[in-house]
Design a protein around this nucleic acid. Structure first.
Lengths: 343, 343
DNA sequence: TAACATTATGTTAGCGCTAACATCGTCAAT
DNA sequence: ATTGACGATGTTAGCGCTAACATAATGTTA
C-alpha cells in the first residue's frame, strides 16, 4: 500500500517486528506453517498482508544454499517442437517450489555457452539443454555443475549426465524408407535451418533411399534460412523447377511440409498421386490438413514429462531407472503418401 | 561429476586467495575489468579459470540490491502469438546483463497472481505481463512493485504502469466489417479458448455485423477448449451442420481459420465462393495457404521490441515518450474473402 | 617541494534470509 | 517432586557478494 521511502521494501524483520515475533518464526510460518502455532501464524499472516511483504528469494537462496531454479536452454521459442517440451516442463515444475529460467540460444553454440555460464551462476537445482551438440566448454561447465543435467530432443551414447529424446537419424531413415516402399522413384529432401538434428535426419534419409536404390543428390535442397510454411512453398517450387520429375519429398519439419503441400496445390498438382509429401514431428495440424499429411510423430510433451521425472528422482536422492531414455517416434501414414503404388 | 560434502563450489574468496588479492579486487576484475591493473587481472582470470569459478548471482543480487531479472508472464508457451513477442523480448534483453524469467499462467488469473508474487520475490528490474485482466491482488502487487511494469498484447486506458498492444475490439470489428462489405450474408464466428481478448474480438465483430444488419447469434460458436487446426475443422463442421446456409466465418485466430479452411475443403466447398474465411493475427502461414487466407495482421514482434525500449528508457531514468502504445493492426485481404460480391 | 589529484587496492560492514543450536514451557511417566 | 521428551520459539552466525569508505602508491602542479 504505502511505500516507505528510503527504507526500501519490507523485510522479514519488519514483519517480525509488526507481529511481535522473531524473524525465524516468520520464516517458518511462511515456509512450513505447521511448525508455528495458530495464534502466531495468524498474526504473522496479517503483518505480511499489511506490509505487502514478499520474501526476497535471492537472500533465501543464499542463506539456504538452495536456489530452486531449473535452467532450461532451447534454440528457439517459436518452434512448436521446443514449445511443447517446454510446456511439459512448466507443467511438471511450475506448480511447485521451482522457478524455471528459460534461455534462447537461437541455434548458436556460443550463445548457449554464454547462457549456461550465466545460469550456473544461479546454482540451479537442475539444467536442461536441447540437443547434444554443445561446445567443449559448455560440456565441461555442465559436467562440473553439481546438479542434474538433462539433454533433451536428441540421442547419443555419451550423455553429459542424462538424456531424453529420440534418434533423428532413425526418424529420417523411416521417412525415406516409407517413400521408397510407397513406390516413389525420384525422392527429394527439403531442409530449412539445417541444425545438427536436421543433418542427422538427412543422413538417415540418405541411407534409406540409397539402400532403396533411389538416392539422387540433385534432389536434395537445403538452406540455412529458418523454416516456415512460406519457405516450404517456395522451396518446393525451386526444386520442381530444377527437377520437374520429382515425385516425392521429405521435409525436415512439418511447417515445410505444409508449405510444400500448398506450393504443390498452387501448381495444380494432386497429392499424393503426382507427388508424395512427408513431414517430421507430426504437429497437430498434419492430421487436419486436406489432404492429411504423413509425418514422423515425435513425443515432445513426453520428453518434457520424462525430463521432469528424472530430475525429480535425482533431486530426491534416487537414481533414475536409466540415464538415457529413447522415446522413439512413429510413422503416421496419411493421405499425402498413400497413393496406390505405381510401377 | 558429482561432488558433495566439504568444500562446495569455489567462492570469490577462493579466487582472491589463489590470485593473492582481496575479494573486492576479484569482484572488480570480473564486473569492470578496466578498474584493475593488467597484472592482477591476468592472475585473477587465471585463478577463475583454474577453479572453474562462476559468480553466485544470488549473493551478488543481495549485496548490490540489483537483480537484473526481467519477469515475463504469458498465458501460453505454444501459442505463436506470445512466442513471437517473447522472441523480441529475448532478442532485446538476452544479450546484455539481464536474465529473463518466464512464467506460464495458462490463461488462469490465479496462476498469474501466484507467479507475480514469486517473481516479485526476486526484486526484478522490470515486469512484463500479458493482457489487462489481472486480479485485483495482482494489480496491487504490481503497482507496488517498485519496478517498471508493462502490460502487453492488449489496450486499455488504465495501465498499471505502461502498456503496449492493440485493440482486440477494433480488430474484431474490422474483421466483421470486412465480411459485411464483401457482401456475405450469414456471417458466423468461431471461437476457441475464449480468453478475455477473444471476447473483445467477438464484441467488436458483433458490433460490426450488427451495424451491417447481419447479426445472428445462432451463427456464433465458441468453446473453452484451446484452439487448434483440428478444432477449427471440427467446429466449422458443427456450425455448418447447424446452419448449412452459413456463408462466411471469422475465426478468433489463425489456427482456427486454417482448420476451417481444411474443414470446408473436405466438405467440398470452394473458398471464397461458397464460404469466406478470415482469421486473426496473420501468422506467416496465412499468406502461403491455398487459397491464401485473409487475416488481421498484428505486430507481435513489434510489441516485444517496444516493450524492451520502454523498459530500457525507464531503467535509464528517462521517461518513455508515452505510457500507452497502440501498435494497431492491419486487415490483410487475401483470396479467402475475395469473391466477386453477390447480390 | 608542499599540496593535491588520481589511480589501484584493501577493509569493513552489511544485503535479507535460514541452519543449527539454545531455551523455555508443558506434560506424561516415573 | 524428578526426569525426560517434546513442541514452540528465540539467538547466533553466517551464506557469497559488493557499496562505501579507507589507504597506499603514484603522478601533477605551482
Amino acid at each position: 500500500m504505502r511505500k516507505r521511502k528510503g527504507a526500501g521494501r519490507p523485510t522479514i524483520a519488519d514483519v517480525a517486528n509488526k507481529a511481535g515475533v522473531s524473524t525465524i518464526t516468520v520464516s517458518r510460518a511462511l515456509r512450513d506453517p505447521a511448525k508455528v502455532s495458530d495464534h502466531l501464524r495468524r498474526k504473522i499472516n496479517n503483518a505480511v498482508r499489511k506490509l505487502n511483504y514478499v520474501p526476497h528469494s535471492h537472500a533465501s537462496a543464499l542463506a539456504s544454499r538452495r536456489s530452486n531454479i531449473i535452467g532450461v536452454i532451447v534454440p528457439s521459442l517459436t518452434n512448436n517442437v521446443f514449445a511443447e517440451s517446454l510446456r511439459a516442463i512448466y507443467d511438471g515444475f511450475g506448480q511447485g517450489a521451482f522457478q524455471i529460467q528459460l534461455g534462447n540460444s537461437r541455434y548458436v553454440a556460443d550463445e548457449e555457452e554464454r547462457l549456461v555460464r550465466a545460469f550456473l551462476g544461479q546454482r540451479p537445482s537442475a539444467m536442461i539443454v536441447a540437443g547434444t551438440d554443445q561446445t567443449d566448454v559448455t560440456r565441461d561447465l555442465l559436467e562440473n555443475a553439481e546438479c542434474p543435467v538433462v539433454q533433451i530432443m536428441d540421442m547419443g551414447d555419451d550423455p553429459i549426465d542424462m538424456m531424453v529424446g529420440f534418434s533423428h537419424f532413425e526418424g529420417g531413415r523411416a521417412a525415406g524408407r516409407h517413400l521408397v516402399q510407397q513406390g516413389y522413384k525420384r525422392i527429394g529432401f527439403l531442409g530449412a535451418r539445417m541444425d545438427p538434428r536436421s543433418h542427422r535426419r538427412l543422413a538417415g534419409f540418405k541411407e534409406a533411399v540409397q539402400s532403396g536404390g533411389r538416392y539422387d543428390p540433385d534432389l536434395i535442397m537445403t538452406t540455412t534460412v529458418s523454416s516456415s510454411v512460406s519457405l516450404g512453398a517456395e522451396l518446393i517450387g525451386q526444386l520442381r523447377k530444377r527437377r520437374p520429375d520429382l515425385d516425392a519429398v521429405f521435409c525436415n519439419n512439418d511447417d515445410m511440409a505444409l508449405g510444400a503441400l500448398f506450393g504443390c496445390q498452387k501448381a495444380g498438382l494432386s497429392i499424393p498421386e503426382d507427388i508424395g509429401i512427408i513431414g517430421f514431428n507430426d504437429l497437430e495440424m498434419m492430421a487436419a490438413a486436406h489432404p492429411s499429411l504423413t509425418s514422423i510423430r515425435t513425443d515432445r510433451y513426453g520428453i518434457g514429462t520424462h525430463t521432469v521425472e528424472m530430475i525429480r528422482s535425482v533431486l530426491d536422492g534416487k537414481m533414475p531407472d536409466q540415464k538415457i531414455v529413447d522415446l522413439g517416434f512413429e510413422l503416421q501414414v496419411r493421405q499425402s503418401t498413400s497413393r496406390t503404388a505405381k510401377a
